[in-house]
């Protein structure tokens, strides 16, 4: 068999098997540079729940990057990634949702309840897909991070923003059902995360 066919076959086999999730054929520094100041807009525009959020990245130690997700200056949720150099040309990216529910489970894990959610659930696969899309130089692919079909509160909030161009908290404020401040206290908590 010609050598080029063997090489092509090997490549196809490798592609079919796929690489380990979260492992990228990029140097650690390259991964760091692409993500360290990246606001991950795909999450904001594809997975937010109809409130205006901002993802604020902050890098530390050269191998960890945190994102604080805020709404009206209040922190809604925090997540981070850790980079591990597997070889000079290969890096593992581990995602961690740092905000926790009252019982210690991960926020937005699919069963997380908050009156005014920021993201469709589960959040972690969406973060992983946003990072993968960034590192692979492609568009965010929703099918790689399916979200719950029973996330009604999020769906309603999201539809309000998408159909009217006005976020849900502003709509509620106009209706006199609440204000951004009161929602922040009641729904998003007075601490650093919801």
């Amino acid at each position: 068999m010609p050598k080029r066919f063997l090489i092509a076959g090997a490549c196809l086999a490798a592609a079919a098997c796929g690489s380990e999730p979260g492992v990228y054929d990029l140097p650690r520094q390259e991964v760091y540079d692409r993500l360290a100041s990246n606001p991950l807009d795909a999450l904001k525009f594809r997975r937010a729940c109809g409130i205006l959020i901002h993802l604020l990245p902050s890098a530390r130690n050269g191998d960890e990057i945190d994102w604080r997700v805020t709404h009206n200056g209040h922190t809604k949720v925090q997540f981070s990634i850790r980079l591990e150099e597997l070889s000079p040309e290969q890096t593992r990216v581990s995602v961690s949702v740092d905000s926790k529910d009252a019982d210690g489970s991960e926020a937005y894990d699919g069963d997380y309840f908050t009156p005014y959610p920021a993201f469709q659930q589960p959040l972690r696969p969406a973060i992983e897909e946003a990072i993968a899309a960034t590192l692979e130089g492609r568009e965010f692919d929703p099918s790689r991070a399916p979200h719950s079909r029973d996330d009604d509160v999020c769906d309603v909030q999201r539809a309000t923003l998408q159909q009217n161009g006005v976020p849900i908290d502003v709509v509620m404020q106009r209706r006199g059902d609440g204000s951004s401040d009161s929602l922040s206290e009641d729904g998003w908590g007075s601490g650093t995360t919801d």
Binding site: L52, L161, G165, Q173
Partner: peptide
């Protein structure tokens, strides 16, 4: 939908509602 969401962020950046 994308257009409306983008407009909302623009409105927020310009002082909000």
């Amino acid at each position: 939908d994308a257009e409306n969401v983008a407009k909302a962020y623009e409105q927020e950046a310009n002082g909000g509602w």
